[in-house]
């Protein structure tokens, strides 16, 4: 029982953070506004991405309060899937960019590693935290 309460709080916070990042991406994606970059975090100025992350956050939060119920869990999982699509695309793009060196050959080791360096999009930071949903899926399935 306790772990579901903790889980609800965890996903409510994660959902709100996701929603906030989505909102920021929407704002930076509007014409005339530049993208934000602070340290290792970069908010890409992309309206399309922003809308998706915003809704992902909304769905994660909406499901978080009924995590024991399959419908609540389903809603949070549904939001997480949307977040995974965006983060998955970011990861795939980095992998693809890390291999060629831009002159028709393979990248050097430094060039390869540098592709994986910061800054990262919010989705890449949020992805590992959203994977906790698998624990609750297993718990509900039990």
């Amino acid at each position: 029982m306790m772990k579901f309460k903790l889980g609800s709080a965890y996903f409510a916070i994660l959902g709100v953070i996701t929603l906030a990042f989505g909102g920021l991406e929407v704002v930076t994606g509007l014409p005339g506004i530049e993208g934000l970059s602070t340290g290792a975090l970069e908010i890409p100025p992309d309206l399309w991405r922003g809308i998706i992350i915003f809704f992902a956050g909304a769905f994660i939060t909406a499901g978080a309060f009924k995590l024991r119920d399959i419908h609540g869990l389903g809603m949070s999982t549904f939001g997480s899937i949307m977040l995974w699509i965006i983060a998955g695309c970011d990861i795939f793009t980095r992998i693809m960019e890390s291999i060629p060196n831009g002159a028709g050959g393979l990248n050097s080791l430094e060039g390869f590693l540098a592709t994986y360096g910061p800054p990262y999009s919010p989705a890449l930071f949020l992805l590992p935290f959203s994977l906790v949903i698998f624990y609750f899926i297993k718990e509900v399935e039990k």
């Binding site: 290792a40 050097s108 430094e110 060039g111 590693l113 540098a114 592709t115 994986y116 360096g117 910061p118």
Partner: peptide
């Protein structure tokens, strides 16, 4: 690794 070492592309 890339973040910690701060490696940069040549």
């Amino acid at each position: 690794i890339a973040w910690v070492t701060g490696v940069e592309a040549p």
